[in-house]
């Protein structure tokens, strides 16, 4: 499948600002997210992975710089218009325990339905299709509270699929999942990118799975708070970043070293 740029940023500065305070998380990001690929965003705790994801989907204002979504500046999207371009899966706690999986997935149709949110036949078809794609269709009438962590994650991915956005951003979708569910979730996302041409960006701490199943890696360095400077984000395919030593430099500490042969982190002897 031919890949095109789904999200690009130009001199994007991300962080938080409030009355009399400003915290830069990264001063300058020039990124390209492509369709048809799974991109894994890696970085230590506090590097600002969530901040970046929330900025890219417009939940958090950029400090300065530009974001282009499908070629159009983020600021140029009307309220609600973005909902059919970028879908998100977040780590936020929700109150959805009391609704059925079907109802949860149907919330993804929000931008497509009318004033009263009545579901038409095409909406029902999109919901069923989304549930089947992630393999949660057999649990459609269960309450969300009855699902395991892995199933719940699948249900939220189904919700974002029902939203029918070309771009999907996921904040740590594999955290709290067991090994099998982690791989299954990644395989699902990979299928969506490769077969349906979606641009998928997910943050994760799971280097193993990312190296195995992601098409691209983004290595987000931490920013020094006083000087408001940071190394540029390192982007590339897993094999390139292994060969040029970028991964080894990014992850190695006094105690841990990256083993390029076995593609994993090991303790220094």
């Amino acid at each position: 499948m031919k890949c095109s740029v789904a999200i690009s940023t130009h001199q994007l500065c991300i962080g938080y600002t409030g009355r009399g305070f400003r915290r830069v998380v990264h001063p300058e990001l020039n990124l390209q997210l492509y369709t048809g690929e799974v991109t894994a965003l890696l970085g230590s705790n506090g590097a600002g992975k969530s901040t970046l994801l929330k900025t890219l989907c417009g939940l958090l204002p950029a400090l300065h710089g530009d974001i282009f979504i499908d070629g159009k500046p983020l600021a140029g999207y009307r309220h609600g218009e973005l909902a059919t371009h970028v879908g998100v899966v977040l780590t936020e706690r929700t109150q959805t325990g009391g609704i059925s999986v079907y109802d949860l997935v149907s919330l993804g149709r929000y931008p497509h339905t009318g004033f009263f949110g009545t579901l038409r036949e095409e909406d029902h078809a999109a919901i069923r299709n989304a549930m089947e794609t992630v393999g949660i269709a057999d649990k459609a009438q269960r309450h969300v509270s009855e699902l395991s962590d892995g199933e719940r994650q699948k249900a939220f991915i189904a919700k974002v699929l029902a939203q029918e956005c070309p771009i999907i951003l996921l904040d740590e979708p594999t955290a709290f999942l067991d090994v099998t569910s982690r791989l299954e979730t990644m395989i699902t996302l990979r299928r969506l990118a490769h077969q349906e041409g979606k641009a998928v960006l997910l943050s994760t701490h799971d280097l193993d799975t990312a190296l195995q199943l992601a098409d691209k890696l983004w290595l987000q360095p931490a920013c020094s708070a006083e000087k408001e400077t940071a190394d540029p984000m390192v982007c590339g395919t897993p094999s390139t970043l292994i060969e040029n030593g970028a991964l080894a430099r990014f992850f190695s500490t006094d105690a841990v070293i990256f083993d390029p042969v076995n593609r994993r982190l090991v303790a220094r002897k």
């Binding site: 939940l59 973005l82 909902a83 929700t94 949110g117």
Partner: peptide
């Protein structure tokens, strides 16, 4: 009714859905 349902997901999800 429609925005109330979206608010079950929390404010960030609701914003992303266009609320």
């Amino acid at each position: 009714i429609k925005p109330l349902n979206a608010l079950l997901l929390g404010e960030s999800y609701a914003t992303n859905l266009g609320v």
